[in-house]
Computed example of a mutant assay.
Amino acid sequence: MHRDLDIGGVLLSPFVAYAGIAFAIMVVLRTIFTRFPLARYVANPPLAEAGLFVCLLALVVALS
């Protein structure tokens, strides 16, 4: 997906779609991670989630 997205006459960068895909994956992973107490293994869980989102975003961009 290397073309701009046209939503109501507004052109959006493909990066917006990549961020949406990464966010959707992150929502699924977050529901899985809430079933297991993985937050006790990191010092700052929100920072760990942000880092995971950045890694997912980089993976989505690299694979597209």
Rank of each mutant, 00 (worst) to 15 (best):
62 A>Q: 12
20 G>S: 10
3 R>K: 13
63 L>N: 02
32 I>R: 07
38 L>P: 00
48 A>S: 10
28 V>H: 01
50 A>Q: 02
39 A>Q: 08
52 L>R: 03
63 L>G: 01
51 G>D: 02
20 G>L: 14
50 A>W: 03
63 L>W: 11
43 A>K: 13
17 A>Q: 06
36 F>N: 08
7 I>W: 06
36 F>S: 12
9 G>E: 08
17 A>I: 10
51 G>L: 01
56 L>P: 01
33 F>A: 15
62 A>K: 12
54 V>R: 04
59 L>D: 00
43 A>M: 06
26 M>Y: 06
35 R>F: 15
45 P>V: 05
25 I>K: 03
38 L>A: 11
3 R>H: 15
63 L>H: 06
24 A>M: 08
56 L>K: 03
30 R>M: 15
9 G>T: 02
9 G>L: 04
55 C>I: 15
12 L>I: 10
37 P>T: 09
19 A>W: 03
50 A>K: 04
41 Y>T: 05
36 F>H: 07
10 V>Y: 12
57 L>W: 01
33 F>R: 07
63 L>S: 08
40 R>E: 14
29 L>T: 00
45 P>D: 05
19 A>I: 03
8 G>H: 05
49 E>N: 13
22 A>Y: 03
47 L>C: 05
11 L>R: 14
37 P>A: 15
46 P>C: 05
61 V>L: 01
7 I>G: 03
16 V>P: 03
1 M>W: 04
62 A>W: 15
43 A>D: 14
46 P>Y: 01
35 R>A: 14
41 Y>A: 09
14 P>E: 05
23 F>G: 08
25 I>F: 06
29 L>Q: 04
15 F>I: 09
48 A>P: 00
49 E>S: 10
11 L>V: 02
17 A>V: 14
49 E>P: 02
43 A>G: 10
15 F>D: 10
60 V>K: 00
10 V>E: 13
29 L>Y: 03
46 P>Q: 05
33 F>I: 09
12 L>P: 03
